[in-house]
Design a protein around this nucleic acid. Structure first.
Lengths: 215, 215
DNA sequence: GAAAAGACGGACCGGCCGGTCCGCTTGTGC
DNA sequence: GCACAAGCGGACCGGCCGGTCCGTCTTTTC
């Protein structure tokens, strides 16, 4: 979803595209995906049509913004992977993830809601899974984790922490409480306890659809 | 939000109201709050106007359905409070909560999104908090929990587990994986570890608005 | 069993939002 | 510096959905 370069954009067009992305990031962060295209365009100082000339649809914009986040997560994962203490790396990664979610209220929920089923951004989620694997590997190798921990557990725990941080849309858990819940789940994953019961979540579940019927 | 009884409803009206509630429960469970009033009315075998004659708005219906869930949670809390082993009580309560969330995909998220800020259903959330208190009390008294655990922690953990269960809207974590994440958080809350770091989430945060600005 | 109160439903309204169109403007290559 | 392609914006369209209106039908009551 990067800038197409078959015919290089005119300078002003390129500038506007950048502005739109920036405005969208800000607007999505503040109010979630519900902000209208019109408002985003206005905040970017641009007409609606200009928006649609750059992005085929609102979804495409969302994907583009999402890609930025994935990149950030990948960077955090690389940091974590090179940490001296693998458990600290893991902690740092999850904390970074929490920050990202906190600064982008409702964004991730909305993203997953929007891309449910038919058009999952497989490439992006695969990159995310890779990142998770890179974070987990050193901790697994060092044997600091409870028996049975695997990738699906980490992605699930990340999701759980993301939920903890936003008790309601527009409400943020005070930062002083973050380490508490991070600690709760890390305690639950640390070595020196019984093996984890049950099966791990499928990390791919984050992208593949499995129709779930209620009982 | 119970049935008004100043002028008793005519028999057919009462029957229709019940049908609407039932249809709404089913529809919300399956597809979240996004189902239109029209569809709910159709599923109830009723006209749209009839719907609006019974409920002043869609939100009122949502509240009514929500109240049903609160009642269910209260019942689960009472069960938990009378369990022989307080930790088992806690586990059972959280498991029940997970089931409820699983069977009502996207319902709770949507509810909190809808009632954000201006018109929080204070009475309902207070009842919820009471229930949580009742679950927690025996475990606290028995000293089976890590030092520092309080009500806000339980509500947060419940929210986290609810998130774990729904990796994406329409996708459900396989039931075999539920005990795993329940165990992760319970391990993190059990006595015999360092006191919980940081501060606890404010349980009331689930209802009171605190405007949260992103960094 | 008839009349009045109450309930019914489907057509209708209005606002919102993603997406398009068209006449005007502006950067760009020669 | 000119011509033309590329870009631009705001008016416009159409579908969706919460909510209302009104002519008709059902229940109740005496």
């Amino acid at each position: 979803m990067a800038v197409s370069d078959v015919t290089p954009l005119r300078a002003d067009a390129r500038r506007n595209l950048e502005r739109i992305l920036e405005a969208a990031r800000a607007a999505f962060a503040e109010r979630g995906l519900d902000v209208g295209v019109e408002e985003i365009a206005r905040r970017a100082g641009v007409g609606k049509a200009t928006f649609f000339r750059r992005f085929p649809s609102k979804d495409a914009l969302v994907l583009a913004v999402l890609e930025g986040f994935i990149e950030e997560i990948e960077a955090a994962a690389d940091d974590a992977a090179t940490a001296a203490d693998p458990l600290d790396g893991l902690r740092g990664f999850l904390l970074h993830h929490m920050t990202l979610q906190a600064n982008n209220t409702a964004f991730f929920d909305a993203v997953s809601a929007r891309f449910t089923g038919e058009n999952p951004p497989v490439e992006l989620t695969d990159r995310m899974l890779d990142a998770i694997g890179r974070v987990l590997a050193p901790a697994l190798a060092a044997g600091v984790l409870r028996e049975g921990v695997e990738a699906g557990d980490l992605s699930t725990v990340a999701k759980m922490l993301g939920a903890a941080i936003r008790p309601m849309p527009g409400v943020l858990l005070p930062e002083a409480a973050w380490p508490r819940y991070l600690e709760v789940v890390l305690s639950g994953l640390r070595a020196g306890q019984d093996p984890l019961p049950g099966i791990a979540a499928d990390p791919c579940t984050m992208v593949r659809e499995v129709s779930a019927n209620s009982a």
